[in-house]
Design a protein around this nucleic acid. Structure first.
Lengths: 243, 243
DNA sequence: GGTGCGACTTGATGTGTATCAAATGTCGTG
DNA sequence: CACGACATTTGATACACATCAAGTCGCACC
């Protein structure tokens, strides 16, 4: 679900008020100037609820810093995480008000908020912004569909390995072994993977015992051989980059 | 996943070459005329594969008639349906070539195909088309996220009841009892729900024995009390419409 | 009306994950 | 450093769904 390309795009674009290169990669400035007045920033602490499920979503916003989750839940308390919001991701939508999911800050989060009607007007007048938003939501759609395969068909071990491989890939530098700090608690991981906390914990322990990963404290993960992890994840190991 | 609002929008729009009101609801014609030459129609028989997973997707198209499925699969043969294409839905995307899923015709299918570069040019020049496509993909995204809750957290009985309620709602007229013909085989249902054929069959039988639904042959489903079915599905029964 | 084949149903059994219940680890705070 | 609260791990058991294996039904075709 989290995607490397968007993570890499979080630097500011100084040429337009949206301030995210992911959105305004082709922006040439003046046409958007009038938007500056409608933009405002707002922050939440880690753990705070940003939007309740079913509440109005009276804004359009993009994440500037931090990480938030989208979660849908059933009346009896069962919950399923349905998305991760990372810097440069958008939340809220033109023309719709009720949120079909709860938005919660995982880390401290800052968002850039736009007035809805003004945002819609801008979209209709600046095609490249609408076009970029379309691309971004199609990426999200593909990611959601990938995740449906994980939820519907993978075993617990494969699910956990998949999540770890995503985190490790995103955090990857040239350095070996790969190392990452899990941004999610075991509970959040379970909510994401359609499992229970206990099963997530057991599978992480099993992967450690089998020498696929190593742990550093409770959050740090190390991996010497990503392709071995990818095999556990049930993915092709003809990955995007060579070791 | 299938959505009523799009199903209702399959009539032709005679004012523009896209020919689907879902896409061109606000279209006023002349600006799009030049597109007529790039448009062509193509048909597939029920059961035929339209696009192989990983193959190039050298077109942008919208469904005119029929029903197709999007399926992702793993090397060992496990499969997960990740989307349904119904009339007025779009497939293919600007800027991307490889399909991350297999597209298969469930019934006979006719699509309206567009040349990719020309389609992209039109999008950048006619904001309302891009805007409508954005809305459609955000709807798809919400539907995909709903389905993640089904796949990750619902029991087999709830999954089957959810699918049946969707089909019955879509087919619903004023008439009672509600009646629908399942467009999918048990195998396709299993692929959609993240279950096996046998489990789907057992749950349908159980719902019948419990008086929630009745069957007509192997494909017809009747339901006297939709709210009872919705309870089995684990959904709120404060539905969108009153009985 | 019989025949054959695929779709579907039903049964018996096994396994993976949830559930319930401690024990252990970790980190902030006094 | 000790304490408490909470996150995590580990263990024992239960149960839902998968798997394997026969049936049965429905329908096209001869």
């Amino acid at each position: 679900m989290p995607r490397v390309d968007l993570m890499l795009a979080k630097e500011d674009c100084n040429q337009c008020p949206i301030r995210h290169r992911a959105v305004c990669a082709t922006c040439d400035g003046p046409e958007l100037d009038r938007l500056a007045s409608m933009k405002s920033y707002r922050s939440w602490k880690a753990g705070e609820t940003i939007v309740l499920e079913g509440d109005a979503l009276p804004f359009v916003a993009s994440i500037v810093t931090g990480c938030a989750t989208l979660t849908r839940s059933m009346e009896d308390g069962r919950m399923q995480m349905v998305g991760l919001l990372l810097p440069s991701d958008f939340v809220g939508r033109p023309g719709r008000v009720a949120a079909p999911y709860e938005v919660v800050a995982v880390t401290d989060v800052t968002m850039c908020m736009f007035d809805r009607p003004a945002f819609e007007k801008m979209m209709s007048e600046t095609p490249h912004v609408a076009h970029r938003l379309l691309e971004m939501s199609l990426d999200e759609l593909d990611a959601a569909r990938d995740w449906m395969l994980v939820l519907g068909r993978k075993t617990a071990r494969e699910k956990v390995a998949t999540l770890l491989s995503i985190v490790l890939r995103r955090a990857s530098t040239a350095a070996r072994p790969l190392r990452a700090d899990l941004p999610l608690t075991r509970e959040a991981m379970a909510t994401y993977l359609g499992l229970t906390i206990e099963t997530v914990s057991r599978q992480i322990s099993a992967l450690r015992k089998d020498g696929i990963i190593r742990l550093e404290g409770t959050r740090g993960v190390l991996c010497d051989d990503l392709s071995a992890l990818l095999i556990e994840a049930g993915d092709d190991d003809d990955g995007d980059f060579l070791d």
